[in-house]
Amino acid sequence: MSEVLNALFLALLVILAGAAVRVRDLVGAVLILSAYGLTMSLVWAGMGAVDVAFTEAVVGAGASTVFFLATLLRTLPREQPRERRARPATLVGVLLLGGLLLLAIHEFPAWSDPASPASLHVSPRYLRDGYRETGAPNIVTAVLADYRAYDTLIETVVIFTAGVACWLLLPRRDP
C-alpha cells in the first residue's frame, strides 16, 4: 500500500475510534466499531499481514458486532449513556500516558525500515529454513501450526474456557 493511502486509513481509524467512543446511541456506537474493525483489517492487509487481516475482518468486524448486538437485544437498555464531565484526574492520567508513549517514539525504528532490530535478529532464520523444515510455503502458518503447535493447541483450551464461562454466566431462557 502506498504511504499516502496508509496515512489516510490511519486518520480514518482515529476518526472512527473517536466517533465510536463519542456517539451516545449504543447501537450506533457498535456499528461504528464494526466499521472501525473493517478499516483496521484493510490497514493490516496493506501492511502485509494478510492472515491477521482475514481474522480481524471475520472476528473484529463480524463476530464482535454480532456479540455486541446480541447483548443489546438481550438487555434492551432504555436509557442513553449519560454525558459526564471528565474529571481532571482522568484527563491528567490520559495525557500522562500519552506523553510517556510519545517520549518512547524516538526509541523505535522508522516505519518499514528493513534494518529494524526485529527484522534482523530471529525472523531471518524462520524465513530461510521454514519452508524446508515444515513444507508450508506460508511461514506464518509454519510458525503457528508447526514451531508453535502446542501454543496453538492450548489456545483452543482458552476458547473452550471462554465458551464454558459464557454458558455458565448467561441466564437460562426458562428460569
Binding site: 502485509g48 518499514s112 529494524s116 526485529a118 527484522s119 524465513l127 521454514g130 519452508y131 506460508n138 511461514i139
Partner: peptide, 13 residues
C-alpha cells in the same frame, strides 16, 4: 507495523 519492510512481499515462499 514492526513486521513491515520497505520493498518486501508477503511471507509466503
Amino acid at each position: 507495523s514492526i513486521s513491515a519492510k520497505r520493498g518486501a512481499t508477503l511471507p509466503i515462499i
